[in-house]
Nucleic acid binder design. Structure first.
Length: 584
RNA sequence: GCCCCUGUAGCUCAAAUGGACAGAGCACUGGACUUCUAAUCCAACGGUUACAGGUUCGAGUCCUGUCAGGGGCGCCA
């Protein structure tokens, strides 16, 4: 936002530095980190240090301060800045607040929901996320994946990428056959109820228990063989039941506000995968050790490394497929279909080595786009005591159970805070708050950090949490509503702003850079933090500055500031996939 | 045995990618509703950034080692 000022300064400062005998210098612009202050900060340490390195006898901190002072004296008075300080080796330039405050607010209001948005980059990024297994549950561990993947997609889109959302469903394998066996055995003819995923999971969990019995296991194996042989009856059942799962997932994605452009199925890449592996064997790339051992590729041999890529098993000794068998053709298919500039796999950290192997294998196969594949790893959601969530162990918190409880609690609070709004509005608010809280918990910690799921923490709506941010948004909208819904078209800002105003305006300027950073690093955390800071800044402003009951000139500029804050809070929440309600 | 991640306030987490006095929330203590929604705000309390070295003008951040926790490593997904 301040490129013009920065460029102008840079020229003048470099001129000064040249006079000091410093020809090559990289200027670094930062924000002044003091609350209530607003402007550009330039550390002079790097320049002093490079002088020291080039043999000049200087003491770096002293020299930095000396340079800062020299530049300050050389610059004299500048129109854009109220005052300039040379302190601790930094050159601090404080904005003339009225002019810049107005520019920030005007820019936000003019650009509206596009404020902070990047130019179209003409680059295509595919993001694969969610990847649930059909016929199974959808638990809180899966939730982190969808929330992270969804937010990353939004960030990339906002940053200017063309994003393709892909999902990859595990629709084949032993778990499916177990499910079908139990269905035929104990639930024949039944249909899913309202909540399809939960129902599917109950049958699966039961199947898994029954499978422990060797007799049942034998029956499952037999059904597996019939299914492999593509017996029409079994295939028909598979398709029908898979559809139930898909509809169940659709319910969940709707609720989460996610949708996909392309859904891949494991079943569609299995055959191509087996063929590909056979070819790799024929070409001498893979070693076929059957019948006693599987088909493998020794990646360290190709990479010239030791214990880095290890051995990847491509096909079981009985000829049946593995994950790797299918992930190779899947990657190829994705590239053929979408010709992406980048392909991101949102998958938990345990698969880091595995994906590294897949990418390496594709490289060995000669696909020059293999370097465009990227594994976005994130840590698990565990239960207290570091217990991993697993349907088979019964150690899971199902998404719909959590969602129902969170919504119920949110609903109670709405009832208490806002008894006069309509029932449907109450439900909408409760859902937005509950879902927002769940999402924010996942997004406001780093991808590399394990989330320990705890009911009390997950359902705590206080403090640094989505409802706090949503509430700030509600307050802003409320003021705007009471003002009559019309904003003054223009308003000049006074030269003296109070601290809360300056802080809030400074926060507004941070959105574009945070979005850029978050998209680049595939890390929504910074935006999550900014959303909270904005809300805090707004609440502080709300508390210290009257908007409606003040003189017209003050009312005018503050109304515009409120509108700008409302916009930026809404945008940052939107990037996190969190709804910004008008009332709560 | 090798590789990856984590270790910051009692608890849960931040920290503009090496910069100014390490910041929030929760919990605890005290205060603020007749004024734009108190799902709010203010104040106080709380730190040798696991430990030991090193690099640097400057290290929570980079390097080496140690300790602790988690994860991964030929036919699970």
């Amino acid at each position: 936002m301040f490129e013009k000022e920065k460029n102008k300064l840079e020229i003048r400062i470099k001129d000064y530095l040249k006079k000091e005998g410093i020809n090559e210098s990289q200027l670094e612009f930062r924000q002044i980190p003091f609350s209530g202050e607003w402007g550009l900060a330039i550390p002079l340490f790097p320049i002093a240090a490079s002088e020291a390195r080039s043999g000049k006898k200087v003491i770096v901190p002293q020299r930095a301060q000396q340079l800062a002072q020299g530049i300050k004296d050389d610059l004299g008075e500048l129109e854009e800045f109220s005052h300039i300080d040379a302190v601790n080796g930094y050159l601090n330039l404080y904005f003339s607040t009225s002019k810049y405050a107005q520019r920030v607010v005007d820019t936000v209001l003019e650009e509206g929901e596009h404020y902070g948005k990047g130019e179209n980059l003409g680059k295509r990024v595919m993001v694969e996320y969610s990847q649930p297994n059909t016929h199974k549950s959808f638990h809180v561990g899966h939730l982190r994946n969808v929330i992270l993947g969804g937010s990353v997609c939004r960030l990339l889109e906002f940053a200017g990428y063309d994003v393709i959302r892909a999902n990859y469903l595990g629709d084949i394998g032993l778990h499916v056959v177990k499910w079908m066996w139990n269905y035929l055995e104990n639930h024949r003819g039944e249909e899913p109820g309202e909540n399809k995923t939960h129902w599917m999971n109950d049958i699966y969990a039961e199947a898994d228990r029954l499978y422990q019995d060797p007799e049942n296991e034998a029956e499952v194996r037999e059904l597996y063989a019939r299914w492999n042989a593509k017996e029409p009856e079994v295939v028909a059942l598979w398709k029908k039941t898979r559809q139930w799962s898909l509809e169940g997932f659709e319910q969940i994605y709707d609720q989460l506000g996610e949708s996909f452009d392309r859904i891949y199925f494991e079943s569609e890449v299995e055959e191509p995968g087996v063929k590909l592996v056979e070819e790799m064997v024929k070409d001498g790339l893979a070693q076929d050790l059957r019948p006693d051992e599987p088909v493998i590729i020794n990646l360290d041999d190709y990479a010239g490394t030791e214990d880095e890529y290890r051995v990847l098993v491509l096909l079981r000794s009985d000829g049946s497929s593995l994950y790797a068998t299918k992930d190779l053709p899947l990657a190829i298919k994705k590239f053929e279909e979408y010709d992406f500039d980048r392909s991101i796999y949102v998958i938990d950290v345990r698969q880091s080595l595995y994906l590294k192997q897949i990418f390496k294998t594709l490289e060995i196969l000669g696909y020059d786009w293999a370097d465009k594949l990227y594994h976005l790893a994130y840590e698990l959601v565990n239960l207290p005591g570091n217990v991993t969530m697993a349907s088979r162990e019964g150690t899971v918190v199902l998404f719909d159970d959590l969602m129902a409880e969170a919504t119920r609690r949110a609903r109670e609070i709405v009832e208490q805070k806002n008894p006069e709004v309509s029932e449907t509005a109450k439900n909408d608010i409760a859902e937005a708050v509950a879902l927002g809280a769940l999402k924010y918990t996942m997004l406001s910690r780093d991808n590399t950090k394990i989330v320990t799921f705890d009911w009390d923490a997950a359902l705590d709506f206080n403090g640094q949490a989505a409802p706090y941010i949503q509430y700030a948004h509600v307050r802003a909208e409320s003021i705007l509503r009471k003002a009559g819904g019309r904003l003054p078209g223009e308003a000049s800002f006074p030269s003296e702003l109070v601290k809360a105003e300056v802080d809030l305006i400074e926060l507004l300027t941070r959105l574009p850079q945070e979005v850029l950073k978050a998209a680049e690093e595939l890390r929504p955390l910074g935006v999550a933090n900014l959303a909270f800071d904005l809300a805090k800044g707004f609440n502080d402003f709300y508390n210290t500055c009257q908007v409606l009951n003040v003189e017209p000139e003050v009312r005018a500029y503050r109304l515009r500031l409120v509108a700008a804050a409302q916009q930026v809070i809404a945008t940052s929440l939107d990037l996190l996939g969190i709804k910004a309600p008008s009332v709560m």
